[in-house]
Amino acid sequence: MHRGRRVTPVDSLPGVPLFRDCGGAVGSWFSTEIVAAGKLRLFCFFVSFIATFLFIRISVRLIRAQVRWWPGNVAPGGMHIHHVVFGLVFMCVGGISGLAVEDNTSASAGLLAALFGSGTSLVLDEFALVLHLDDVYWTQQGRLSVDAVFVAVALCGLALLGASPLELGDALNPGADGKVLSRTEIALIVGTNTLLSLISLAKGKIWTGLLGIYITPLALIGAVRLARPGSPWARRRYRPGSRRLRRAEWREKRIRDPIERVKIGFQNFVAGRPSAKP
Results as ranks from 00 to 15, higher is better:
71 P>H: 02
222 G>W: 02
47 V>R: 07
232 P>G: 12
63 I>R: 10
30 F>S: 00
245 L>H: 06
137 Y>D: 11
256 R>Y: 15
218 L>S: 04
256 R>C: 13
23 G>D: 09
243 R>C: 06
33 E>W: 03
120 T>K: 00
12 S>T: 12
222 G>C: 01
153 V>F: 12
173 N>L: 07
13 L>D: 02
65 A>C: 09
139 T>H: 13
133 L>D: 14
76 P>H: 08
162 G>P: 06
224 V>N: 12
122 L>R: 01
232 P>C: 08
8 T>L: 10
82 H>F: 03
139 T>M: 05
101 V>M: 13
219 A>L: 03
211 L>G: 08
65 A>T: 03
263 K>C: 13
140 Q>W: 14
241 G>T: 02
212 G>R: 02
234 A>K: 02
224 V>S: 12
82 H>W: 02
261 R>K: 12
179 K>Q: 15
55 F>K: 07
47 V>Q: 07
105 T>P: 05
254 R>V: 15
243 R>Y: 14
205 K>L: 07
271 A>G: 09
22 C>P: 01
190 V>G: 10
196 L>W: 04
42 L>I: 14
16 V>Q: 01
77 G>P: 01
109 A>N: 15
10 V>E: 08
134 D>R: 14
232 P>M: 05
173 N>C: 05
127 F>I: 13
22 C>W: 13
164 S>R: 05
193 N>F: 03
225 R>V: 03
12 S>C: 06
119 G>P: 09
8 T>C: 06
58 I>C: 14
272 G>R: 01
273 R>M: 04
230 G>M: 05
201 L>H: 03
207 W>D: 01
264 I>K: 01
197 S>E: 05
276 A>Q: 12
26 V>C: 09
41 R>K: 14
173 N>M: 08
89 V>R: 06
105 T>F: 13
106 S>R: 07
177 D>R: 12
145 S>Y: 05
276 A>R: 14
197 S>R: 00
161 L>T: 06
94 G>M: 04
184 T>A: 15
78 G>W: 03
81 I>Y: 08
203 K>I: 00
227 A>P: 04
125 D>Q: 14
183 R>D: 15
189 I>H: 14
107 A>V: 15
13 L>W: 04
12 S>I: 07
42 L>N: 07
268 N>M: 11
35 V>K: 01
195 L>S: 11
165 P>Q: 06
52 T>K: 03
214 Y>K: 02
144 L>K: 09
216 T>M: 13
89 V>F: 13
72 G>H: 04
60 V>A: 09
49 F>S: 08
133 L>K: 14
263 K>Q: 10
268 N>S: 10
249 E>V: 13
207 W>F: 13
244 R>I: 00
231 S>W: 02
145 S>L: 08
37 A>K: 04
122 L>Q: 06
229 P>L: 08
74 V>R: 09
101 V>E: 14
238 Y>E: 06
